[in-house]
Nucleic acid binder design. Structure first.
Length: 527
RNA sequence: GCCGCCGUAGCUCAGCCUGGUAGAGCACCUGACUGUGGAUCAGGGUGUCAUCGGUUCAAAUCCGAUCGGCGGUUCCA
């Protein structure tokens, strides 16, 4: 053995997708996008690469080293543009060129903003910073595809490349759109196979949080964000943990890690905890609203948030979306620097058991909300938008783990090669089956031994094998073996010789009847 | 990123404390079987003991660093 060459290895955080997962993924995307389409969203795609500054405007936490985008310098030189889109020139009046930084998209919303802003940019009134029309055009689209995030820590079910399935409405401030987004999520999840009652769409409004801070007297945004972060951990660390982190800090008993406190006065801390606990275990959107009413109605932002929630509730109720599908949960705190109004997420209530026996909770499988600052940072123009995204990979994993049917994926039909000199005949058999819409593969492996071919078919979960040797060709027949039926009957095998003589899962039929016979086996009937 | 635990065959793991160059179950491979996967029987160990370095006559075993996994913490547009 000499040099081994380059060691083949996959990039960490990225995945190879096997045929079963791939098929499931595509099925989910088809089912969900069909729902999106029914609501009037149209399909737009955008490139995987964007100029980093177009994305970067939405990187609220670029200072944290943990996360980031994959980026690199464009190999091609392009002109540098100023804020009005004019080429920058040097003293000699030459156009200044540079290798711009390109980045892989980390979600589908930032590219949407770019796409939308680019449309507006073409309008003279917008470019001159003096919009003649204060009303941005309405735009509804869905999009799916891979997004890329550099994450320092890779939890199970968390990757650096993953699929998102987005739908967004740009150009409307009406919370009716937010209510509709909840319906879309619910419909889409059910279309992919989640049973009613196994999931819930949780809704909150960032304005409620804002109201809480007004009440408690927290004006600083960073501080507010810190408080929300602590609230979000309530189910993990409990009321005493939350109280400690809001005030003096605590030491995590699990890891011994020191968690610094936020230094809130104890009165403020108990107001915050009261807010979180006020709705714990409260069933029904009406009841949640009533609890919040008594706590936040006297703050300007809280009042606003409550009005929005109330309207969303009325719209949902009018459409028949009850508490079995959409709930109000004031602890939901997504995308702190990003969302401006209603926020939603969808979670599965099913438990998944790891091979190790541990129960694993799936995180949110969908997330979304209103982000009225979308285009503002690109064009200085405030454009309302709301939308949500399904995490396709998480949903796929959830369904794969909780649905037995999905695990039983089938391979193609295999045409066994008994006599390599009759390859043309085998390929003709395969062509006939394919013409009937049946996925079919001819054995091209090295040894023509039948046992090896059967083992191959078994591994590949082939449902049917077509066998034709000298006997069959002489009689113009084929032997058709039902591997799934054979598997069922395999338990009865006591004497192999006897078993082979009877071949209970195999039939010999006239060549003309082959397609029909295979079709009926695939349809579930036994030949 | 920080703290803790872990890293031996394809998988689940034993061996490590008390150094003497590896073992179990399952899986896998071969054959009984010249035209039949799953039964049965008979064979087969398929491994740079994560990597690199240190201590030692001798390291899977002791020490250090690195990489990888898991849990927590941070974070999640």
């Amino acid at each position: 053995m000499g040099e081994r060459g380059i060691v083949p290895r996959k990039v960490k955080g990225f995945r190879d997708i096997d045929p079963v997962t791939s098929r499931l993924r595509r099925r989910l995307i088809e089912a969900a996008t069909e729902v999106y389409r029914r609501y009037g969203f149209e399909h737009w795609d955008t490139p995987v690469l964007e100029y980093a500054d177009a994305l970067g405007k939405y990187l609220p936490d670029t200072d944290t080293a943990d996360e980031g985008v994959y980026s690199f310098r464009n190999p091609e030189m392009e002109p540098v543009l100023d804020g009005r889109g004019q080429e920058v020139r040097d003293d000699a009046n030459n156009v200044v060129m540079t290798h711009h930084v390109l980045a892989m998209r980390y979600d589908l919303t930032a590219p949407l903003a770019r796409r939308y802003a680019e449309e507006l940019w073409a309008r003279d009134d917008i470019r001159s910073q003096q919009p003649s029309s204060p009303k941005p055009p309405l735009f509804r689209r869905y999009q799916y595809g891979p997004v890329f995030r550099f994450e320092a820590k890779l939890d199970p079910g968390r990757y650096r490349e993953f699929q998102q399935l987005d739908f967004d409405t740009v150009g409307s401030t009406d919370v009716a759109v937010d209510a509709e987004a909840c319906c879309v999520l619910s419909d889409a999840l059910e279309a992919t196979g989640l049973g009613r009652g196994t999931y819930e769409v949780r809704v909150n409004d960032r304005k409620l949080h804002k109201g809480l801070f007004e009440r408690v007297g927290i004006a600083d945004e960073t501080k507010a964000r810190d408080v929300l972060r602590v609230i979000d951990k309530y189910d993990k660390i409990g009321p005493s943990g939350v109280a400690a982190e809001l005030q003096g800090g605590r030491i995590d008993p699990g890891s011994g890690a020191e968690v610094p406190g936020l230094g809130l006065p104890s009165g403020a801390a108990s107001l915050v905890i009261d807010y979180v606990e006020s709705c714990l275990g409260v069933e029904g959107r009406e009841n949640v609203l009533a609890r919040l009413e008594s706590r936040l109605a006297d703050t300007p932002s809280g009042r606003e948030g409550l009005d929005e929630m109330r309207r969303i509730h009325a719209l949902l109720a009018g459409l028949g979306y009850g508490d079995d599908r959409v709930v109000f949960d004031p602890s939901v705190a997504r995308g702190l620097a990003y969302y401006t109004g209603p926020v939603f997420e969808a979670v599965s209530k099913l438990e998944v058991r790891e091979p190790s026996g541990a129960v694993r909770r799936f995180g949110a499988i969908c997330g979304g909300g209103r982000y009225d600052g979308l285009v503002e940072r690109l064009l200085g123009l405030r454009v309302p938008a709301t939308g949500a995204s399904i995490g396709v990979d998480r949903l796929a994993e959830l369904i794969a783990r909780t649905s037995a049917a999905e695990a039983e994926a089938r391979g193609p039909v295999l045409v066994v090669v008994m006599d390599p000199s009759r390859m043309a005949d085998y390929q003709r058999i395969a062509a006939e089956l394919r013409a009937a819409g049946i996925a079919t593969e001819v054995w091209y492996g090295p040894q023509p031994k039948m046992k090896a071919q059967m083992t191959y078919a078994d591994r590949k979960r082939c449902p049917v094998v077509v066998i034709a040797g000298g006997d069959e060709f002489a009689k113009d027949t084929v032997s058709i073996k039902d591997l799934l039926r054979g598997k069922e009957l395999a338990g009865e095998i006591a004497d192999r010789a006897e078993w082979l003589r009877r071949q209970p899962s195999q039939v010999e039929v006239a060549r003309a009847a082959m397609v029909e016979t295979v079709r009926s086996i695939l349809a579930g009937g036994n030949a």
